[in-house]
Amino acid sequence: MTDTPSPATLDPYPAPFHELLGIELLEWRDGFARIGCAVGPRHTNRSGIVHGGVMLSLIDQGAAYAGLWCSVPGNVRRAVTLDLDCRFTGQVAAGGRLVAEGKVVTRGRNIFFCRTEVFDAEGKLVAFGASTHRWRAGSEGVEGQKPDAGE
């Protein structure tokens, strides 16, 4: 039996936005990322269901992570989102867990394209999307760069 790495081991430099929403990195490898978010009352809209912006954020962040895996421990890669679309296929009540799986579809020298799916606690597809991202300078290669480089 293998130990599951902690989110801090997977990404020692998470975004403050992740803490705000409660996003955790669950699995990460080149071209793939799985993230999760335990959804509660703070994630709901006025109708009492999980806000679509939470699911859209999971699509964006799952995709970005898929393209930002780094082969050198301690190094980091960065990107910006150029385009993002989303389709909602279901509603989610507070109190469950959402999981997003992002996959790189193709990549070029500076840009990568992803597809991401979001599932509820029962494994039902509740949203999906496609996105385009551009690596920041120095982040194009899987080896990444030192965390303070490029700032």
Results as ranks from 00 to 15, higher is better:
5 P>G: 11
28 W>G: 00
141 G>A: 15
132 T>P: 04
75 N>W: 00
43 H>A: 08
79 A>Y: 00
7 P>K: 10
103 K>A: 12
36 G>N: 08
30 D>W: 02
28 W>N: 01
50 V>I: 11
133 H>N: 08
140 E>P: 07
6 S>C: 04
91 Q>Y: 02
136 R>W: 01
138 G>K: 10
9 T>N: 06
36 G>Y: 04
1 M>N: 11
91 Q>P: 03
31 G>S: 03
114 C>Y: 13
104 V>N: 12
125 L>F: 07
57 S>R: 03
49 I>P: 00
141 G>E: 15
52 G>V: 09
131 S>W: 02
48 G>R: 08
15 A>K: 12
133 H>A: 09
52 G>S: 08
33 A>L: 05
12 P>W: 01
148 D>A: 13
106 T>P: 01
106 T>R: 15
13 Y>A: 05
31 G>E: 04
99 V>N: 06
18 H>M: 14
103 K>F: 11
82 L>F: 05
62 G>R: 09
30 D>C: 02
86 C>L: 13
66 A>Y: 06
46 R>Q: 12
91 Q>W: 05
74 G>V: 10
13 Y>N: 14
42 R>Q: 14
42 R>S: 06
50 V>D: 10
96 G>L: 12
18 H>T: 05
66 A>S: 14
72 V>R: 09
59 I>D: 08
13 Y>G: 07
87 R>F: 00
3 D>E: 15
10 L>A: 06
63 A>E: 03
56 L>E: 01
75 N>I: 02
65 Y>V: 02
9 T>I: 09
58 L>N: 04
138 G>Q: 09
39 V>Q: 05
140 E>R: 04
29 R>T: 05
35 I>C: 10
34 R>K: 11
35 I>Y: 08
135 W>Y: 15
63 A>R: 01
71 S>Q: 07
103 K>T: 10
130 A>V: 02
58 L>C: 05
122 E>L: 11
11 D>C: 15
105 V>T: 13
87 R>G: 03
108 G>C: 08
22 G>C: 08
121 A>K: 11
105 V>D: 15
72 V>H: 08
64 A>P: 01
117 E>T: 13
135 W>F: 15
28 W>V: 00
19 E>A: 15
78 R>Q: 10
86 C>G: 09
144 G>N: 10
146 K>W: 00
112 F>A: 07
60 D>T: 07
11 D>Q: 04
123 G>N: 09
132 T>I: 07
91 Q>R: 12
53 G>I: 08
41 P>T: 04
99 V>L: 13
148 D>C: 02
149 A>F: 11
149 A>G: 00
